[in-house]
């Protein structure tokens, strides 16, 4: 997939400190065009220039999906972060340009649901905000549960109450303890869908409560991000021509072959059609398969790779090509 062909350019328009470790960024288009529309629950992948390399971090769009003149994201500093969130807290300034992907939605509302329960924990409020906005616009039946640690961290409670008056249930975990999913899920009517974004422990507790109560797994949704394209750089050697290239971090193996004028038939560029399959003769690293074409046996054999989406996690790949 050519990740750069459709990359969007944005300018950081405004940075707001919402809490000691939470910053909100307002992004505006970096050229004369408006941003594309997006659906509630969508995220974008930011390309951040850190130490001469590009780091890719996914963030949910938290604003009004109908607005195309600006987008909003919020970033919590991850204590263990040496990458994206630290850069956004320490280096990012208004006026800077950044590249980002078009919106992708892997946390979409189910429009056939009879009732929607939105659950946010901490910074997990970001996709929930856009979903609440969308459900309010649609006139759908919904409720929002927003868990946070102390009032200082309830950074979007005011926005949420403005979007959905009388439907918001704040939950201060410092005062009230953990959100109890058993009673919350048990009282929902058939046909309800639940959407949760928060710390992993909270999501796990919710899913376990749902399973215990016999909720269909298809009615329990948690936020998913797309796996950022690219990966570790690696060497590729072509046995037939003796050519050798480096596949960089942000290009696919197929794109690298094409850039070097190595004729490689391809079609779907998404790991489904099988056209670009290449034979692996040797690999000093592990093959990272992202396709849906190869069977489990073919993957296990280590003899085949779909260069449009799959790569090596470093080292050298020798192809019969």
């Amino acid at each position: 997939m050519t990740t750069n062909a459709t990359a969007l350019s944005a300018v950081i328009y405004k940075v707001s400190e919402l809490a000691p470790d939470v910053r909100e960024f307002t992004l505006i288009p970096g050229n004369d065009e408006l941003f594309p529309l997006y659906s509630a629950g969508s995220h974008v992948v930011l390309s951040l220039p850190i130490g001469g390399r590009i780091h890719r971090n996914a963030y949910s769009l938290l604003g009004d999906p109908a607005r195309r003149d600006h987008w909003r994201i919020a970033v919590r500093r991850q204590q263990s972060s040496r990458g994206g969130s630290a850069w956004l807290h320490d280096e990012a300034r208004a006026g800077m340009y950044i590249d980002l992907s078009p919106p992708v939605n892997l946390f979409s509302l189910v429009r056939t649901a009879r009732h929607h329960v939105l659950v946010a924990g901490g910074i997990g409020i970001t996709p929930i905000l856009s979903q609440a906005r969308e459900l309010a616009r649609l006139g759908a039946s919904f409720e929002v549960h927003y868990a946070f640690r102390g009032p200082a961290n309830a950074v979007f409670l005011h926005d949420l109450k403005a979007i959905a008056p009388d439907r918001v249930h704040p939950h201060d975990s410092d005062r009230d303890g953990q959100l109890e999913f058993g009673p919350l899920l048990a009282r929902q009517a058939l046909g309800t869908h639940l959407y949760i974004c928060g710390p992993q422990g909270m999501v796990d507790a919710c899913m376990q409560a749902g399973a215990r109560l016999g909720w269909p797994s298809k009615h329990l949704h948690s936020e998913q991000f797309i796996a950022p394209a690219g990966g570790e750089p690696f060497e590729v050697e072509l046995k037939r021509s003796g050519k050798r290239f480096t596949v960089p971090r942000d290009l696919s193996l197929l794109e690298t072959l094409e850039l070097n004028q190595v004729d490689t038939p391809s079609l779907c560029r998404g790991g489904a059609c099988g056209q670009c399959e290449l034979e692996v003769l040797d690999a000093t690293g592990a093959l990272v398969h992202h396709d849906v074409y190869l069977s489990a046996e073919e993957r296990a054999s280590g003899r085949k790779i779909m260069p449009c989406v799959s790569r090596l996690d470093g080292g050298c790949l020798v192809l019969n090509h």
Partner: peptide, 12 residues
């Protein structure tokens, strides 16, 4: 395969 491919279809 077609369904998996299409589920990941992206805007634009």
């Amino acid at each position: 395969r077609a369904l998996k491919y299409l589920l990941m279809l992206q805007q634009g």
